[in-house]
Amino acid sequence: MVFKRLRQALGVGGPSVETVLANPECRPGDHLEGHVQMVGGDHPVELTSVALGLVTRVAVESGDSAYGTMQEFGRRQVTDAFRLDPGQRYDVPFRFEVPWETPLTDLFGQRLSGMTVELRTELEVTRAVDQGDLAPVAVHPLPVQERLLEALLRLGFRLAGADVERGHLYGVHQTLPFYQEIEFFPASRYAGTINQLAVIFMTDPQQTRVLLELDKRTPGRFTGGDGFGRFTVDHATATHTDWPAQLDTWLRHQAG
């Protein structure tokens, strides 16, 4: 699949820019490959650089209020300075690494409600920056993430949506300034004790740290009625675990 966007950059008469993705589908840790194709406009332009970066919408809490903002991550410069003359064609191939902690946007053939990840092309000239177009990217789960989420669905949980929150999780190695929460409505067997379940993945090339947070209907052994759990799964051994049984045991223990 090829994704194309054509626009006029850097003002009237400036160069046109076409960003072509060979495939907008990826997983955390993958690469996006494509080309940034530019054609000079009516006048020569001295470009300082062309850079790519992924962006996602992040929820930010400020006092008693919250708002959403677009957050760039994984930024990478793909050219040095060059001159683009009128009508000149300039083609920049790229292979962009998708960070391991990139939020997921798609699960089991459907878009996660509230989620977006896009690839932004940025052109920079002296004293001016054009942030270019946003090319949508579909980020699918890694096998270990898919197995854990599928296990929750098999237990009867229903996907509620997801969001990305700015901040760092205590006691967890984290490379991006935000994290994703994937939220589920409880299965009927837990509905009397659980309001909602949130799942957080913190992934690197070897393993995935899984954080589970329960919003409990009545306070139990955890202050405020919340239950927390965390464990680490090696990518190589994730398929050897009976995840529905393991998660059911943990949930019953925490909800009791």
Rank of each mutant, 00 (worst) to 15 (best):
P136H: 12
P244H: 11
A81E: 14
R209K: 14
L152E: 02
L119K: 02
M70S: 13
V78N: 00
T56L: 00
G53V: 02
H35F: 14
L104C: 05
V39S: 04
T121V: 15
T69E: 14
D42W: 00
E97A: 15
A51Y: 00
G11P: 07
E18V: 09
L169K: 11
E122S: 09
R120A: 11
G29R: 09
L149Q: 08
G167P: 03
L142P: 02
E25N: 10
L107F: 15
D226K: 15
G225A: 12
V98D: 06
A255E: 12
A245K: 14
Q37K: 13
I194W: 01
T19P: 00
Q110R: 15
A59I: 03
R89F: 09
V45T: 04
M202R: 11
G227H: 12
L142M: 14
M70Q: 11
G256V: 10
R230E: 10
V164C: 13
R95H: 08
H31R: 14
D204A: 07
L148E: 00
E183S: 10
Q206A: 12
D248W: 01
G40E: 08
L107S: 06
R189M: 05
T79P: 01
R83M: 12
E165G: 08
A9M: 11
H240P: 00
P186M: 04
F228C: 03
R7T: 08
V50G: 00
E33Q: 12
F82T: 00
S65M: 09
V144G: 00
G132V: 08
R120E: 12
E213H: 09
L211C: 05
R75H: 05
V36L: 04
T126G: 03
G68C: 01
Q88P: 02
G109T: 13
R154T: 14
D91Y: 04
L134T: 04
L247K: 04
H43S: 08
L155W: 03
A191V: 08
H168M: 12
P99W: 10
L32Y: 08
M115I: 07
A187T: 05
Q180K: 08
P143R: 04
A255K: 07
Q77T: 14
T241I: 15
R27A: 13
Q37L: 11
E97P: 08
A191Q: 13
P99C: 05
H168A: 13
C26S: 11
G132Y: 07
D215A: 13
R83Y: 00
C26R: 03
V199S: 00
K216T: 04
Q71L: 03
G220C: 09
L149H: 06
R75D: 03
V78W: 01
F157T: 03
T193S: 15
T208R: 05
L123W: 03
D42Q: 06
F94P: 02
Y179S: 04
P103N: 12
Q145M: 09
G87R: 08
A22D: 15
T241Y: 10
Q37I: 11
V210Y: 10
S188K: 06
A51Q: 07
V129W: 06
D133A: 09
G167L: 07
P103M: 10
T126F: 14
Q8C: 05
Q180A: 05
R209Q: 15
D130Q: 04
G34K: 04
Y170H: 14
R217P: 04
P28N: 07
P136L: 13
R57K: 07
P186W: 10
H35S: 02
A66C: 08
H140M: 08
F73I: 06
D30P: 04
G74L: 06
P86C: 06
L6S: 13
S62F: 07
W243G: 02
D215C: 01
